[in-house]
Design a protein around this nucleic acid. Structure first.
Length: 919
RNA sequence: GCCCGAAUGGCGGAAUUGGUAGACGCGCUGGACUCAAAAUCCAGUGUCCCUUAAAGACGUGCCGGUUCGAGCCCGGCUUUGGGCACCA
């Protein structure tokens, strides 16, 4: 019998599906383990060879954990709402549902061919009404909640209303956006509308005005993580800053907990660091500057981390979007300021960042330095951001490079505050040195001066300590069609939640997917988009809405009473292993943690962090191949000879190149213009050039897994993707070397079959065979736990080399179990040929017996300190007496045996043995 | 500019974490089988000196240090990948 991977893979994929081999149900007799892949957005291009890398790794881990006796939950689904399907709908009129459906079907077909052990009964799409019902439900929970800063948790909004009735706005310490101040009596006297407006400032999902990223080309606002360098991440269109009223999620309220929680997670340091930077905690102080404008006085609060530098303040700056701008612009400067604001508004985000030109305008008002009493001018400049701190800063040009650049441009004074700092050319930003020109701070180091200054400020009522976070609330509205509708209607102008029994609020049919002529979102086109006669919200939720709690839904995907039942949540708890790319570091992985913490506060889930351990698989880049056409001819010259001619480099489809050798016949068929191409060969072959580039259609370097499955089989694909290198590392795809992995499987097969002869016998394994087997067991265990799959594959190849001709059942049976996570089809086939009726997934991982693997041996002699030492390797479990015996067995006389918990030396006359302990 | 990470043969990558660098695979060279090819199997394959071999010397981006011993630790660079970037 030959290794017919096509037949074998088809057969077992069908068998697994029919027997629901990978179905997972809560089982309290076993420990649970939840392995999750970041689910894909089903794009029109289908799955390419880079997608399955993480899926294969997680599948191997899942299968390994099952063999180790865990009850494994390993689901898969689709992040199905999103821009591409909608853009396609706008162009073609095809309903995004239809496009998505086709794409999902294709993804599923491709996934099925790779032999994943997903529990497909738990599959869903985020665009299924049964699913997005719970996205809408979660939104309503957020709408109906506020964040108590004292308790550091979300609470029902009714409790806030009760507190207001009791003690007015001062009664609570709640996260809010510029909520007004009022007494209990005032609260009771407010109209319904007034109350609703106030509560809106406290809700965790709220409607509020803020500066948003507006993308005119897409006709929608975007979240910060959807904007890269001033362009939309999807589509690459320019993004503008615009003040708009939008639904937002109060992620900022959770900043402290999102930061702290990182310490308890088993994620890579680089990813945690990215999140820390994104959250951006900084400690400092808020202080009040008295500002006079046309004779009127105002208290303007600023935030600073350098309270020690107040003596060096020579001006103040407001953000152009700051609400202070209007109040602090003097009559005489009105025109100049208006002109400046107009100019700023026109710029894209990109231009603001990239230009870095120093711009600004004098407001006409003056502030008093609270420590020195000096009068300083107030300026307006775009280098101050409205969204961070208070939107107003005190400027210390001597010790802040941005302030310095501004001072130089507008000729403002610079007062150095640190001894020896030369500020004639540049500011001195470092937080080191000894203070001067700073009154009571003189002589202190910067590190001492910062707290001393804040203490003084607090003691004199000028301000207080304050922690600021960079992270902003997430913009949650999208002016698009293909997303979850908001379950909100506007009753007399009051945003009102739909009753939960009305959920899901399904997407209405519309005839066109564009915004309306009036610039309203596409849902405004829907007929009768109302509830109880009141208009429904017309924007939809962003892509991250559906992906924020999907891991919870997998635990209980068919429940129509709850997002997840307490029983299912209590059993599966959270994701033990999450595998996906780093590109979600500041998007999905922040939103999900926020979403989960919110549900945790309300008691719907039992764990406050969703993803315990996270592995980032590296991107698979494309490896492009080139042919070289001699200029003005149809002749192609092989890579090694191309320098003798003047040539043009042309991308060639990598699917007709093997090991950098061009399949000339396929090339001729590839394009009509190459049908009669001529070739100048090297040693009878055409060698192609190559380069590492992003995998893309236009570079003809996209490798489809179907191709590999057809040519080599899924098991080869799985082994090869793992063999390519460490999972976290970005690496180029190439089919070089895939033959080696395929050869391994064919040789493995031949341990069982020599053509049509069944080779398996019942003989007793030799000591050497047991050593090979147990070395592999130990290695595989260790490697899988460390996600070092490439070395496991190597270990298999070594074991196979050592086991040539060994067809003993007692060796082959455990070997199959070891192989099954990596190459499940061939393992399952041979497992059944050995006479087993049940799937190999029900087998137990073989027990590792270290005593078979380590023999003590003298490694090599080394001379130092005038003595010769020998390195002796012994098992870590060895006692001193055993070590002594070992030393004697090598003809050496031990003089001293040290503590064996660490490597120690055994001294012999003139010679020392260094004992190296082996685990 | 700031913060992480990486650098090892012709290539992908190993190296028990301070102990014989280059496992395993690819590629390449030679051989066996074959009329031939494919497939398969066997042997060789870091560099230099050399007809070859033995032996030797050199060798983990560069310079220096610690150590009996450094790919691994320390100091200073170079190149490169990624993230953040007016965050006061």
């Amino acid at each position: 019998m030959d290794y017919d991977f096509i037949e074998i893979e088809k057969k077992w994929q069908a068998w697994w599906a029919e027997h629901k081999t990978y179905k997972a149900e809560p089982d309290t007799t076993k420990p649970k383990y939840y392995v999750l892949d970041m689910f894909p957005y089903p794009s029109g291009a289908g799955l390419h060879v880079g997608h399955p890398l993480g899926y294969i790794a997680s599948d191997i881990f899942s299968r390994y954990k099952r063999l180790k006796g865990f009850n494994v939950l390993h689901p898969m689904g689709y992040d199905a709402f999103g821009l591409p399907a909608e853009q396609y709908a706008i162009q073609t009129g095809q309903h995004p549902e239809k496009t998505t459906h086709q794409n999902v079907a294709r993804y599923r077909e491709q996934l099925d061919r790779i032999g994943f052990s997903y529990d497909w009964d738990r599959e869903f799409r985020t665009s299924d009404p049964d699913y997005y019902k719970w996205t809408q439900w979660a939104f309503l929970q957020m709408f109906g909640s506020w964040y108590d800063n004292g308790l550091q948790k979300a609470r029902p909004i009714a409790e806030l209303e009760a507190a207001f009735a009791e003690g007015g706005s001062a009664a609570v310490d709640a996260a809010n956006n510029d909520a007004p101040v009022f007494t209990a009596d005032e609260w009771t006297g407010f109209t319904e509308k007034e109350k609703a407006d106030i509560l809106m400032h406290y809700r965790i999902a709220y409607q509020g005005e803020s500066t948003v990223n507006w993308c005119p080309a897409l006709g929608t606002v975007l979240a910060n993580d959807e904007v890269k360098d001033g362009y939309s991440e999807r589509g690459g269109y320019p993004v503008f800053q615009k003040k708009m009223t939008q639904w937002q999620l109060r992620v900022s309220a959770y900043a402290g907990r999102l930061l702290e929680g990182l310490d308890r997670l088993d994620w890579t340091d680089s990813l945690k660091e990215m999140q820390r930077n994104w959250i951006g905690k900084s400690q400092g102080a808020e202080m009040v500057f008295k500002v006079t404008c046309d004779g009127k006085q105002h208290d303007v609060t600023i935030f600073t981390t350098r309270a020690d530098t107040v003596f060096g303040v020579t001006f103040m700056v407001l953000a152009p979007e700051s609400e202070w701008v209007e109040k602090l612009t003097s009559a005489s400067q009105k025109e100049a300021v208006a002109a400046y604001l107009e100019q700023v508004k026109k710029k894209t985000e990109r231009e603001r960042i990239a230009g870095k030109a120093v711009t600004g305008v004098f407001s006409g008002s003056y502030a008093l330095n609270p420590l020195t009493g000096a009068e300083v001018p107030v300026w307006i400049s775009e280098y101050v951001l409205a969204g961070y701190g208070t939107g107003a800063i005190m400027a210390v040009p001597a010790h802040d490079s941005r302030d310095y650049a501004f001072a130089k441009k507008f000729d403002l004074p610079v007062i150095p505050l640190i001894e020896g700092a030369d500020v004639s050319e540049d500011s001195f930003d470092a937080k080191e040195g000894v203070m001067m020109n700073s009154g009571f701070l003189d002589g202190l180091t910067v590190k001492e001066a910062i707290p001393a200054a804040i203490d003084y400020i607090e003691a004199n009522g000028l301000g207080h300590r304050k922690v600021n976070y960079r992270i902003r609330d997430a913009i949650f509205s999208r002016q698009r069609y293909w997303g979850e509708p908001f379950p909100i209607y506007f009753k007399d102008g009051i945003a009102t939640p739909l009753p939960t029994e009305e959920l899901p609020l399904t997407l209405p049919e519309i005839n066109e997917y564009k915004p309306t002529e009036a610039g309203e979102p596409p849902l405004a086109r829907a007929k009768d988009w109302t509830y109880g006669g009141y208009p429904l919200e017309t924007s939809t939720m962003p892509g991250f809405a559906g992906s924020s709690a999907y891991y919870l839904r997998y635990m209980d995907p068919h429940n129509d009473k709850a997002l997840v039942s307490p029983e299912a949540d209590g059993y599966w708890r959270n994701v033990d292993l999450y595998i996906g790319g780093t590109e979600h570091a500041t998007g999905h992985l922040i939103y999900s943690r926020f979403w989960n913490k919110f549900l945790y506060d309300l008691g719907y889930v039992c764990e406050d962090e969703p993803f315990r351990k996270l592995i980032n698989q590296g991107m698979i880049q494309g490896r492009s191949n080139f042919v070289y056409r001699i200029v003005n001819t149809n002749t192609f010259v092989s890579f090694g000879l191309k320098d003798r001619y003047e040539t043009t480099e042309i991308h060639v489809d990598v699917n007709i190149v093997r090991n950098d050798r061009l399949d000339i016949e396929a090339f001729k068929r590839w394009r009509p213009e190459y049908e009669h191409a001529e070739f100048i060969l090297e040693d009878g072959e055409y060698v192609c050039g190559w380069a590492i580039e992003k995998m893309s259609k236009s570079m003809y370097n996209v490798v489809n897994p179907d191709y590999v499955c057809n040519t080599y089989g899924a098991d080869t694909l799985r082994l090869y993707e793992m063999f390519l290198g460490p999972i976290e590392q970005a690496k180029p795809w190439s089919t070089d070397g895939i033959d080696g992995v395929n050869r391994f499987l064919k040789r493995f097969w031949r341990l069982f079959w020599d053509r049509d002869t069944w080779l398996v016998t019942d003989g007793e394994p030799t000591r050497a065979e047991l050593k090979t087997l147990h070395k592999l067991i130990g290695k595989e265990q260790e490697d899988i736990e460390n996600f070092s799959y490439n070395t496991t594959v190597s270990a298999f190849m070594i074991a196979l080399n050592e086991l040539q001709g060994c067809s003993k059942r007692a060796v082959l049976e455990p070997l199959l179990i070891l192989l099954s996570p990596f190459a499940p089809h061939i393992a399952e086939e041979l497992w059944h040929q050995l006479g087993h009726e049940d799937s190999i997934v029900y087998a137990a991982f073989p027990e590792y017996r270290p005593e078979y693997t380590v023999d003590s041996s003298i490694k090599y002699p080394v001379s130092f300190n005038g003595k010769t030492r020998f390195f002796l390797e012994v098992p870590a479990s060895a006692t001193p007496a055993e070590v002594e015996a070992q030393v004697r067995s090598h003809g050496l006389t031990p003089k001293y045996v040290g503590d064996l918990s660490i490597a120690k030396m055994i001294v012999v006359p003139g010679r020392i043995v260094n004992v190296v302990l082996k685990k």
